[in-house]
Computed example of a mutant assay.
Amino acid sequence: MMQPKLGAIAVVHHAGRFLLVKRKNEPNANTWGFPGGHVELGETALEAAVRELAEETGVVGTAERYLTNVDAITFAEDGSVRFHYLLAVVVCTYRSGTPVAADDVSDAGWFTAKETATLHQSPNVQKIIEELDV
């Protein structure tokens, strides 16, 4: 039986831009979103966001606070659930590094809020940017 999974995403806003990655794998393959992934057993979502940020982009950040939670549920055509995640959205402060696509992403880069609106995005990206209100 499928169970929901806990994930964390790192929202990094630096020098007027957001750090986004292009996903290689489902769910949301070939869409732009925030770096992130599964929370490991014994790890907080704050720790997971910082770890995933480094693994996927090479960027070092510090977790500052939780912004919100996002229910990420993908349904198949027959109505069954394909993927179900509860994502802890973690605001992170940029410390160092230049984004390089690694792990399970095919691209990574910095984008203004206006530029993000033109990208093929994962669900909730624009909502999170608006909620951050920077």
Rank of each mutant, 00 (worst) to 15 (best):
M1A: 11
M1F: 05
M1P: 06
Q3E: 09
P4W: 06
K5W: 03
L6S: 11
L6W: 10
L6A: 03
G7A: 15
G7P: 03
A8Q: 01
A8F: 00
I9C: 14
A10Q: 03
V11M: 10
V12W: 01
A15V: 07
G16N: 03
G16L: 02
R17Q: 15
R17M: 01
F18P: 14
F18R: 07
L20F: 07
V21M: 11
K22C: 13
K24C: 10
K24P: 01
N25I: 12
N25A: 11
E26P: 14
E26C: 10
P27T: 12
N30K: 12
N30I: 00
T31W: 01
G33E: 05
G37N: 10
H38L: 12
H38M: 09
H38K: 09
V39E: 02
V39S: 04
V39A: 02
V39G: 04
E40M: 10
L41I: 13
L41H: 04
L41A: 14
G42R: 11
T44K: 08
A45E: 03
V50S: 04
V50M: 04
R51A: 09
E52C: 05
L53H: 04
E55K: 01
E55I: 02
E55R: 06
E56Y: 03
T57Y: 06
G58V: 05
G58F: 01
V59C: 09
V59N: 12
V60A: 13
V60T: 15
T62K: 12
A63F: 10
A63E: 05
E64N: 14
E64H: 12
R65K: 15
Y66W: 05
T68H: 11
N69G: 00
A72L: 12
A72M: 13
T74N: 07
A76T: 12
E77W: 10
D78K: 04
G79D: 11
R82F: 08
H84E: 13
Y85D: 04
L86Y: 02
L86G: 10
L87V: 03
A88P: 00
V89A: 08
V89Q: 09
V90I: 15
V91F: 06
T93L: 13
T93N: 14
T93D: 13
T93Y: 08
T93C: 11
R95S: 05
S96C: 00
S96D: 14
G97Q: 10
G97L: 00
T98S: 14
T98L: 08
P99C: 07
P99Q: 06
V100A: 14
A101I: 01
A101C: 03
A102R: 15
D103N: 12
V105K: 11
S106I: 08
D107S: 13
D107G: 04
A108K: 02
T112N: 05
T112V: 00
E115I: 02
T118E: 13
L119F: 06
L119P: 13
Q121S: 14
S122K: 00
S122L: 01
P123R: 11
P123G: 07
N124H: 15
N124Q: 13
V125T: 04
V125N: 06
K127Y: 08
K127G: 05
I128Y: 07
I129E: 12
I129P: 11
E131K: 09
E131A: 15
L132K: 02
D133R: 08
D133W: 07
D133K: 09
